[in-house]
Amino acid sequence: MDGTEDRDRDTEGRARNARPRDGLGRPLPYGAAGVARQPEGVERAPAETLAEAQRLLDAGMPFHAHEVFEDAWKSGPEEERDLWQGLAQLAVGLTHAARGNNGGGARLLRRGADRIAGRPDPYGIDVRALRRWAEELAERVTADAGRRPAPPVDPVAEAPRLTGGGGPVTD
């Protein structure tokens, strides 16, 4: 026995952890109430991808938004791969910062910002504003890293606007 017999498996037999997850994608104990997972492999039009990802970001679920972007990069045209991968990295960066992993969050935010840099603003995405949001959040979560750990960020309050402005909505 190699220990894989007891692993959770999906319908195709691939190893897939069936533990419930919280809104930030962290595994919870078996039997706990969790957040519904995003279905994998969904092909959406770009506007649908952006709308679903924005809904998840606004709900404080950036990990789940990352999965929506992952579907877009896997099913979309090759020339858009960097755009969708960069947006996924921004969502995962926010996820890490919300989990309290500020260093990892900042690295992913900067990596995602670099990946979408220089791209036109397709589908109404304000690439420059998103880059500015990511760079400012990365700087803020690491500003006091040498003195004291910054607290986790609030993923709802920090959710970016994917179209028309980049930064969080302020009332």
Rank of each mutant, 00 (worst) to 15 (best):
D8F: 07
R9G: 02
R9W: 03
R9K: 15
T11S: 14
E12F: 09
E12A: 14
G13I: 06
R16K: 08
R16V: 06
R16M: 09
N17W: 03
A18K: 02
A18D: 03
A18I: 00
R19S: 14
R19G: 06
R21A: 06
G23T: 01
G23S: 14
L24K: 08
L24I: 07
G25Q: 02
G25D: 08
L28C: 12
P29C: 06
P29Q: 05
G31T: 10
G34H: 10
G34D: 01
V35W: 01
A36E: 11
R37D: 11
Q38A: 11
P39H: 10
E40Y: 05
G41W: 08
G41T: 04
G41H: 02
V42G: 06
P46E: 12
P46L: 09
T49Q: 05
A51H: 13
A51W: 07
A51T: 13
E52I: 00
Q54F: 13
R55Y: 05
D58R: 14
D58C: 06
D58H: 09
D58P: 05
D58A: 15
A59R: 07
G60R: 04
M61N: 13
M61R: 14
P62F: 03
F63A: 12
H64V: 08
A65Q: 07
H66T: 04
E67R: 11
V68W: 02
V68I: 15
F69K: 01
F69W: 11
D71E: 04
D71P: 05
W73H: 12
K74Q: 15
S75R: 14
S75H: 13
P77R: 13
P77A: 10
E78D: 14
E78G: 00
E79Q: 11
E79D: 14
E80L: 01
E80T: 10
R81S: 09
D82R: 13
L83R: 06
L83Y: 01
W84I: 07
Q85E: 12
Q85N: 09
G86Q: 01
A88R: 08
Q89A: 00
L90P: 00
L90T: 08
L90R: 03
A91M: 00
A91H: 05
V92P: 08
G93R: 00
L94D: 02
L94N: 03
T95P: 11
T95W: 11
H96K: 15
A97L: 12
A97G: 05
A98M: 12
R99T: 05
R99P: 10
R99W: 00
N102M: 09
G103Q: 09
G103C: 06
G103I: 01
G104S: 10
G105P: 10
R107E: 08
R107D: 12
R107K: 12
R107M: 06
L108V: 01
L109W: 11
R110S: 08
R110A: 04
R110Y: 00
R111A: 14
R111G: 03
R111E: 15
A113W: 02
A113R: 00
D114W: 09
D114E: 15
D114M: 08
I116R: 05
I116V: 15
A117F: 05
A117T: 03
G118C: 03
G118Y: 01
P122F: 12
P122D: 08
Y123W: 15
Y123S: 13
G124P: 03
I125M: 15
I125F: 00
I125S: 11
R128L: 12
A129G: 03
A129F: 11
A129L: 07
L130H: 06
